[in-house]
Design a protein around this nucleic acid. Structure first.
Lengths: 149, 149
DNA sequence: GCTTGACTTCAAGTCCGCTTGAGGTTGTAG
DNA sequence: CTACAACCTCAAGCGGACTTGAAGTCAAGC
């Protein structure tokens, strides 16, 4: 098996990561990834950048902005492959966000299902529907109230 | 308890829903909500619009675009409070999306945790890291390969 | 040596989901 | 009647995440 070079050009990184070259350059401007240059001024990425890009995409799927991801990646080495400890630290920081987002979605799903199931849609006690009704507790009665039944 | 009027002005809807008036007007241009007008050309929303707006925000939390939400809401009555059957239909359409997104996130979390736990981060079998490595199966060997160990 | 494709920079454009501002009208409290 | 808050429209602006285009350079095959 040929050992592929440690320094890969942007096109290869794009093909492997599924991220366009323009997006990769954009990530560079945002400090998410970094590349050295060959004598002809073309970008050469260390192999582990592929991992970093995969991480960025994963983080986006979780709903993080590029700024947040940049913050998370700030603790990761740019010049060498991250050690297990680097990843572990990052994951520890991430895990709560993931968990929070998952429980948020689960709550939403369960409330929605519960509402349909129990027919509570017109009741002010329905948490899904009243969730954003910030004035609902002001004692004057909810606007949702009287369309019961 | 005073029964509040059926037609509420935009400021009240904004306060109750936690959505700015400009966003509400924007939603109207996108066909997400509708209002009648009073003699002075000011918007008057039926009470149940509050519910509709809550639904829109919930949908956004799930990761749907306003266009998709508009599509989902297209089956809902604009001129009357939705019946239980209307909501049930909508929820049936929604539920799979919610479930899919939840399992996606759970998978991501478990893979991430699993990677850290098992130390597989440098192995090509790691699904989290290799997920976007679209060329990984082309037989030439993964760029991720040789930084094992 | 030439062609072709991958690469370079930089500026501008696009889509989404709003927000802001100008300039004017309506509604309500004193 | 007046003041002032809340409303109106329309146009432009903004932040995020890129994409597209122009104009030029570099690298590899024939």
């Amino acid at each position: 098996m040929p050992v592929l070079p440690d320094q890969i050009p942007i096109g290869v990184l794009a093909a492997r990561s599924g991220v366009s070259t323009s997006a990769l350059r954009f990530y560079e401007t945002r400090g998410l990834i970094a590349a050295s240059r060959n004598p002809g001024n073309q970008r050469r990425y260390p192999r582990f950048t592929l991992r970093r890009v995969a991480f960025i995409r994963a983080a986006q799927r979780v709903g993080l902005s590029l700024d947040e991801i940049a913050g998370a990646l700030a603790g990761m080495p740019v010049d060498r492959a991250p050690a297990k400890a680097d990843w572990a630290r990052l994951t520890r920081a991430w895990r709560p966000r993931l968990d929070a987002r998952i429980t948020d979605l689960e709550k939403l799903r369960d409330e929605l299902t519960g509402c349909i199931g129990c027919g509570c849609l017109s009741l002010r006690t329905c948490r899904l529907i009243n969730r954003d009704d910030v004035a609902a507790a002001d004692g004057a009665g909810s606007y949702l109230q009287s369309d019961r039944g």
